[in-house]
Design a protein around this nucleic acid. Sequence first.
DNA 1: TTGAAAGCGTTACCAC
DNA 2: GTGGTAACGCTTTCAA
Lengths: 347, 347
Amino acid sequence: MVTIADVADHAGVSASTVSYVLSGKRSISEETAERVRASIAELGYRPNARAAALASRRAYAIALVAPLRPDNNVPVIMQFVAAAAMAARARNHDVLLVTQEEGVAGLERVSSSSLVDAVIVMDVEIADRRIPMLTMLEIPAVMIGHPGRSQGISTIDLDMAAAAELAVQHLADLGHRSIAMLGSPSAVYDRKSSYAFRFREGFERARGEFAVEGHWYPVEPSYQSTREVLQAHLAQHPQTTGLIVHNESILGEVLAALADEGLRVPEDMSLVALCPSDLAVTQRVALTSIAVPTDDIGAAAVDMVLGLVDGSAHAESRLLAPELTIRSSTAGPRSAAPPLEEETGTP
Amino acid sequence: MVTIADVADHAGVSASTVSYVLSGKRSISEETAERVRASIAELGYRPNARAAALASRRAYAIALVAPLRPDNNVPVIMQFVAAAAMAARARNHDVLLVTQEEGVAGLERVSSSSLVDAVIVMDVEIADRRIPMLTMLEIPAVMIGHPGRSQGISTIDLDMAAAAELAVQHLADLGHRSIAMLGSPSAVYDRKSSYAFRFREGFERARGEFAVEGHWYPVEPSYQSTREVLQAHLAQHPQTTGLIVHNESILGEVLAALADEGLRVPEDMSLVALCPSDLAVTQRVALTSIAVPTDDIGAAAVDMVLGLVDGSAHAESRLLAPELTIRSSTAGPRSAAPPLEEETGTP
DNA sequence: TTGAAAGCGTTACCAC
DNA sequence: GTGGTAACGCTTTCAA
């Protein structure tokens, strides 16, 4: 292994000079700098990151705590991970992957062993047990999600409550008066995952606000569960003409189940999905959807946490405003009253 | 930050003694050990992993190079990542996530900067440009996949060619004489991704071996692409009664498209999938499938690479034998000739 | 069974 | 503008 001392010898300078040429933290005469660079190239010198981390007290790495369990929405999680990883690399940081299963212990471990400079925690719960731990950590943290009490920890997420309201509003504006929401698997609600919880809350609030009938159901990621839920609901509420789906893994199943019930989209049933845009456009019917901006959120999480690391930013909670894109899965109900005019206030 | 020196002072021993209590690399009297452990607990000491790595020349971390691009089969990738991460943690190693986009440069970087002790590379191509780099690395590597020439680098994967043959054999044994294979998106074949390439090779070989008519098609991950491919094939080859699907993201779409064509599974069309088992059982019809044992492969990759690190193992190529599980998506064709007897030889 | 001390390869402070 | 040299916090050899 070539060390900085080897380079220094070869270039006829001191180790510190080599270090400064590399870091640019002080001015070096162009002549020496050139000589040093030549030696680095000739010897094939690569700085040892561990030594640099030790000396500089900076690991140039962040931990990403990601839920890899199957009940989660895997593609979405993956998009977050990819976005965060690329954003981190763009800012010269590496990403240490910590599985959710490690829980509080994992956070404690990577932080207190100085392996990383900061942590990003995904899939936070409303009363996440990791939050107290995060506040005690000696390194900054950002949560992707929106817990009940963030206790001074930065958070970023799509405004799920607003997203649900927007979905309901869109359907209500089209004239739908009975709406069903197909949600995440029940385990997700049981553990009070913030994204699911907030969306459901928004849905419940919105049905009052927009004076529509609304029911919600957890759905497991299988065709069978999807169809059962749908059939059971329609048996009781045949008047339902609007569907909101907040579960990326069953989008295709919902469309298939509707077809099997003899219901056309959007003629018999309108459907709004909350999902990354690419999933919305690859279904058999292009779905009217509210985008989950995974790339923006992942990149912003990295920006926020590195801002905290270098002291250029303070803790904050960011909620991204939802945006609805109308595609081919929503229309007025067949016996539609003409769509309401742009009434945005409450009755 | 509490250091080993603080603990040593507090316990009235030397730093080396503390180190040895922790590592167990030499015997310590139970009395001192107990005193040291008490001090560690009292002071809340956590060893600094960077310093340990520097001194021991061992990072206790592995790099995982994962393709996070959307055209890949995201859930499957994620399962590999999860399995590898958990296996690594079980063996006290951390996982550094390197995106495929970093390519050769990423490999070079993590290895030569001594950030990790080993690398695992996923989604290798038949003539992967990273292989020469891997051979030059000063740290061990394992590839998940099976390139054309592994050049001394360890590899592990499901035996994709055998899997394809097994799928064809199963259908042929049931009496099907015309089979179509729906594969990965064309970009995957274009870049000669080894898993897709090998499976297709096996398919092509098997149709000769089992004397069946067989066609294959790349399929993009959308309902539309799936249905188009299916319709186009059936228009030309209405006699087809067997389908092999090697593309996890379109399993649901295939079943939906078949239904839309008025074809029942398995009465009109038998279907064998190559996918993780959990995906096979959550479809509207439980799919006869050959499992992609993501957990086994991920864990084995970690074992292999750590074996190389500690010198307890040598480079090797491992191919896992495929296993077929019969579920509800395969049966004999309606106008079935009685299934062929166990003829395994070539004509 | 234990301690002292020499690294590990950088960074960054203190001189010049 | 450049060099010397303490750290950084740990592991491991050498001595006792």
